[in-house]
């Protein structure tokens, strides 16, 4: 049986879809059969980020409503034969997701894949709660910024209350993925530090993804970050995060501090 991972955050625009695509690709690069499921019904974007927007025929809602069989809706990645995408519907709304339908689809995917990555929509409503419902592991994507941290705290509360595992009294693995981190700004005291966010949210750290042009570049190209340039700093961060997710013990590295020459010379830092 595969493991179900929900990539969630509460707040929008923090990098859920980028992270779901990058982690999914990173796990698939390890030769583990992976499917990434878009739960953002009505506002799908995972297909675009993964470069499969022109290959969508059937979607999650079609499968739930019985208009298509699950294998018909799955899109195999052109670059990695272990990576699949199950797109969301763009034309219907989230009311078309039923709890029972989602349970059946996730159950079937778990039997056929090593990893089922659920890309949650923003918010705390139906789409988000259904995306996290069957998760074994939650990846909470957070920016080092007050509104994102607050929303992550709220989402962590929901994970502990509304997932099947939580309702059974089992504990659910929750991990923090800190994205858009800028070590220079944190060092100057203008951005929450990794330790600050960890102390406030008190869940273990899965990885630190630095703010980088490579992320926008990868989405422009429709390529998961880890496939676009596996040597780039964000790709390395996601590849390491995927190894930790798979149970490997990889030490966390804060992405390289690149202080300007001037900064180094004058020891420019916050008072």
């Amino acid at each position: 049986m595969g493991k179900v991972v929900v990539v969630t955050s509460g707040k929008g625009g923090v990098g859920k879809t980028t992270s779901a695509a990058a982690l999914g690709a990173a796990l698939a690069q390890r030769k583990e059969k992976t499917v990434v499921v878009d739960f953002d019904v009505g506002l799908r974007n995972l297909d675009l980020v993964m470069g499969a927007e022109r290959r969508v025929v059937y979607d999650l809602v079609n499968v739930i409503q019985g208009d298509a069989k699950l294998p018909q809706a799955l899109i195999r990645d052109k670059r990695l034969d272990t990576l699949y995408l199950l797109p969301a519907s763009q034309t219907r709304d989230k009311d078309n997701l039923t709890a029972q339908g989602v349970a059946q689809v996730i159950g079937a995917l778990k039997r056929n894949f090593d990893w089922v990555i659920c890309d949650s929509p923003a918010g705390i409503e139906r789409g988000a709660t259904l995306a996290m419902r069957h998760a074994d592991i939650a990846v909470v994507v957070t920016n080092p910024e007050v509104s994102s941290v607050r929303d992550s705290d709220r989402i962590i509360g929901l994970i502990d209350a509304k997932t099947v595992k939580a309702e059974r009294g089992e504990s659910i693995d929750k991990h923090l993925l800190l994205t858009r981190y800028d070590p220079n700004r944190a060092e100057r005291g203008d951005m929450l530090k990794v330790e600050d966010v960890l102390e406030i949210l008190s869940i273990p750290l899965l990885g630190i993804v630095p703010e980088s042009m490579d992320v926008l570049r990868a989405s422009n190209l429709g390529t998961p970050v880890t496939l676009a340039d596996s040597q780039s700093a964000p790709a390395q961060a996601y590849l390491q995060a995927a190894r930790r997710l798979a149970g490997e013990d990889v030490p966390i590295s804060v992405p390289g501090e690149k202080r300007s020459l001037l900064g180094k010379l004058f020891g420019w830092r916050a008072a």
Binding site: D153, A186, D196, G267, W268, A270, A271
Partner: peptide, 26 residues
């Protein structure tokens, strides 16, 4: 440092403190 005199005061500690108070409440 000398240049530190001209910098704005660090804002991250304020963010951390505000979050801690708010989240304890929420």
């Amino acid at each position: 440092s000398f240049f530190g005199l001209f910098r704005k005061q660090a804002s991250a500690p304020t963010a951390r403190d505000r979050l801690q108070v708010l989240l304890a409440h929420e």
